[in-house]
């Protein structure tokens, strides 16, 4: 199923990835080819087949609720691209 430029822009928006017009055109072409290949799945009958989320059947793995030391603030902030004193600096969320 071929995609349109608008659909690609919509997906990019949902994924919060900025794209140039060139990139939109290329993505439309390449994604359409790949989606076409996915149609192979329609030839498999999965009536009544349960989905698999992962291949080793573990469920509800629990651990004891014990407190642990957290890394200190300076260590955590060292990787942040923009820091202001003890804070991470971001653009205003509310206008």
């Amino acid at each position: 199923m071929p995609l349109t430029d608008d659909e690609v822009r919509h997906i990019a928006r949902l994924a919060r990835v900025g794209l140039s017009d060139d990139e939109v055109a290329r993505a439309r072409e390449q994604l359409s080819t790949i989606l076409e290949h996915f149609e192979l799945l329609n030839s498999y009958d999965v009536e009544g087949v349960p989905p698999t989320a992962q291949s080793f059947d573990l469920a509800n793995v629990e651990r004891d609720d014990v407190s642990r030391e957290s890394p200190d603030r300076d260590t955590l902030l060292a990787n942040a691209p923009r820091v202001d004193g003890p804070y991470v600096r971001v653009r205003a969320v509310l206008e």
Binding site: I11, L14, V17, A27, L41
Partner: peptide, 26 residues
Amino acid sequence: IFLGTYALSAGYYDAYYLKAQKVRTL
């Protein structure tokens, strides 16, 4: 990221992601 976002987006989840998980079981 686009492929995944598309496969999980409203209207396509059943046709792609859920279907793939079921074929995974097969």
